[in-house]
Simulated scan of single mutants.
Amino acid sequence: MTKPEIATAFSNGEFDKAKNFIADDAIWEVVEEDKFIGKNAIVENCNQVGQYFKSVTTKFKTLNVISEANKVAINGTAEFIRDGKRVSFVSACDLYEFNDSDQIQKITSYCIQSK
């Protein structure tokens, strides 16, 4: 997978596709919410988020993928629906930094929930 494909998979909740490309000492910061240090902590959080995704219908929309050298930026939206009703709608931007082994070294996520 290319760096943009890895990043897009992660941003769209396809964690199983992306988890083998996460560096052991990676950091994922969800700005103003949480920080996960190390691959194990990131994968554990992905597993929890993945369980939530199974409980709702998810509609991800990728709006832009910008890639340069070892960095990828992705912005888009996610809509979560349960029993035909919108549970949540998020506008997000994820910034990925890759190491020289093409593994995710750092993710910075900005997530804005609509009211």
Rank of each mutant, 00 (worst) to 15 (best):
V72S: 02
F15H: 02
A26G: 02
T77A: 09
D94Q: 09
Q51A: 12
N70Y: 03
P4K: 02
A92P: 01
I74H: 02
F10P: 00
I66A: 07
G13R: 06
S101H: 13
I6P: 01
D83G: 12
F89V: 03
A92M: 14
N99S: 05
E68F: 10
T2L: 07
T108F: 05
V90T: 15
D102A: 05
T108S: 11
N47W: 04
S55Q: 13
F36C: 02
E29R: 08
G13K: 09
K85H: 10
K35H: 04
G76D: 06
E44T: 11
E29K: 07
E68T: 08
Q113K: 15
F10D: 00
T77L: 06
T58P: 04
K3M: 13
G84N: 12
N99E: 05
K54M: 11
D94C: 03
S67V: 03
K106D: 03
G50E: 09
V65W: 07
N64E: 15
Y52G: 02
E33N: 13
S88H: 09
S91E: 14
K35S: 13
V30P: 00
F80H: 10
N75D: 14
V30M: 13
V87N: 10
Q105G: 08
A41E: 15
F89E: 09
C46E: 10
I22K: 00
Q113E: 15
N70R: 10
E68W: 06
S114K: 12
F89M: 08
V43E: 03
Q103C: 04
K71E: 13
E79C: 10
T77C: 06
V43S: 02
A69M: 11
D94S: 08
F53E: 06
K19R: 11
F80C: 05
I22H: 00
S55Y: 08
